[in-house]
């Protein structure tokens, strides 16, 4: 469980994920986690719900590769990515990224890196149901920029 991923329809429990990340671990002095949620507005459109699609098989492979890359760049003790798929509503949790390390610097950086790469590499697609109809979410240039800054 030290480095693991999950792609699932069901919700996740942040407390439980945290508990599992640090279970039996006395070395990790730093834990950083990020939770992404469905917000009610996107590009001035009212979002009612969204459906999240992915490419089974490739998604898991890419998420594992992203974890491996983070592991090679920073001194991490454990890391976990959980990403939901299917129908999600406003305020629902979408994604969990958790990282533990001896000191906070590595945990903070790795968590940001994982999210930036997940957003630009992992094959997920959002389709929003808005007041203006159903719309596929467009690629965000800010996300692309955020991901590029990690290029060595």
């Amino acid at each position: 469980m030290a480095f693991s991923i999950a792609v699932q329809e069901q919700d996740f429990d942040v407390g439980r994920e945290y508990g599992e990340l640090i279970f039996g671990d006395t070395a990790a002095g730093a834990v950083v986690f990020f939770v992404g949620r469905v917000r009610d507005t996107n590009y001035a459109r009212d979002v009612k719900s969204m459906s999240l699609e992915h490419y089974p098989g490739m998604t898991e492979k890419i998420l594992q590769q992203i974890l491996d890359e983070a592991k090679s760049r920073w001194k991490l003790i454990a890391a976990r990515i959980v990403h939901r798929v299917g129908e999600l509503h406003v305020s629902d949790q979408i994604v969990f990224v958790g990282v533990t390390s001896v000191h906070r610097e590595h945990a903070f950086q790795a968590a940001e890196f994982l999210m930036d790469f997940l957003k630009t590499q992992a094959p997920f697609w959002k389709k929003e149901l808005t007041g203006q109809g159903a719309l596929w979410v467009e690629e965000n240039s800010k996300d692309v920029g955020a991901s590029l800054r990690w290029n060595k």
Binding site: G36, L52, H54, Y55, H83, I94, V95, M115, L118, K119, T120, Q121, A122, P123, F124, W125, K126, W136, V137, E138, E139, N140, D143
Partner: peptide, 8 residues
């Protein structure tokens, strides 16, 4: 084949 990804 697929469009740019938009997860997270």
């Amino acid at each position: 084949f697929f469009p740019p990804v938009t997860g997270g």
